[in-house]
């Protein structure tokens, strides 16, 4: 543990009505900067640029351990491209939380907007509330979504989670919306309370894990009851996360597995397991 006090950014009571880009406030971008310089950093806000001092009061010194208090859903790109250290968001987060992140830990005490963990490459994100659409997805124009690291959402998640996902794990304690794992290339997406319609739409490889399916997608085959050693390993690992994951079975279990999307490459899998 660092002996230094965490660097705390507390949002002013009155905030601009426009959306703001907060991506400047990450451990690696603030490392080595004196407080005076941090206060003058510019934060894009609508068509203007504000300084950190216009938006936050700042205290503390440890740039490796940042806390943003009073965050609102207009704060976009928090922790984007973060590579090290810890970022704690007390409040809600806007769009693109942790976009392109490569390392470190982002903890959000509230809900997050769209495209959280988009193109994430490493590190971990822990979201206490809900997450919007396109969690861990590829932003428009990109060929690959999340390609490493781990995202945990304790609430529910919107549609298109894991779109074009390439690697890593999205772990959801609640429900995930429609088209979960669409166009997925690889990786793992798991939702303990199930999914909406069309899971795995266009997926090539990768693993989706749910407790049930409302309807088996027409382009998925299989459904035989089988046992997979890899699930035991996975569940044992996830059990350490606690919360809803603490209940995961850690002995070999029988599951149903569907292979698809057979309209494409079709080597992905949807596993229906007694979670």
């Amino acid at each position: 543990m660092s002996a230094l006090a965490p660097l705390i950014f507390t949002a002013q009571d009155v905030l601009p009505a426009q959306r703001m880009d907060i991506s400047a406030l990450t451990p690696q971008r603030l490392a080595g900067l004196p407080l005076k310089e941090i206060m003058t950093l510019s934060l894009p806000c609508g068509k203007r640029r504000l300084s950190v001092a216009d938006v936050f009061t700042v205290q503390g010194e440890d740039t490796a351990n940042i806390i943003i208090k009073g965050a609102v859903s207009r704060f976009d790109r928090m922790g984007a491209t973060m590579s090290e250290g810890s970022l704690m968001v007390e409040g809600d987060a806007g769009a693109y939380l942790g976009q392109g992140m490569t390392g470190g830990l982002i903890t959000v005490k509230g809900a997050v907007g769209i495209f959280a963990a988009a193109q994430m490459r490493g590190g971990a994100i822990d979201i206490s509330g809900d997450a919007g659409d396109f969690l861990g997805a590829a932003v428009p124009g990109e060929m690959q979504g999340m390609a490493g690291g781990q995202v945990r959402v304790r609430g529910n998640v919107g549609h298109r989670a894991g779109d074009r996902m390439r690697r890593g794990a999205i772990l959801i304690e609640g429900r995930v919306g429609d088209y979960a794992g669409s166009r997925m290339l690889a990786g793992t997406l798991m939702a303990l309370k199930g999914c909406g319609t069309h899971p795995g739409y266009g997926m090539r490889r990768g693993t989706l894990i749910f407790p049930n399916l409302n309807a088996i997608p027409a382009t998925f085959n299989g459904g035989d009851r089988q046992t997979f050693g890899v699930l035991t390993l996975l569940f044992r690992s996830l059990q350490k996360l606690g919360g809803g994951f603490a209940q995961l079975p850690t002995e070999p279990i029988v599951v149903q597995r569907y292979l698809g999307d057979r309209s494409g490459d079709g080597r992905g899998e949807i596993i229906v397991a007694p979670l």
Partner: peptide, 22 residues
């Protein structure tokens, strides 16, 4: 064959006639 990385270790899953060789 398919791989999974769990706790930083990569495992391979190879389909065989009794299921999957891990």
């Amino acid at each position: 064959q398919a791989s999974k990385v769990i706790d930083g270790k990569r495992y391979w899953r190879i389909p065989v006639m009794d299921g999957e060789f891990l």
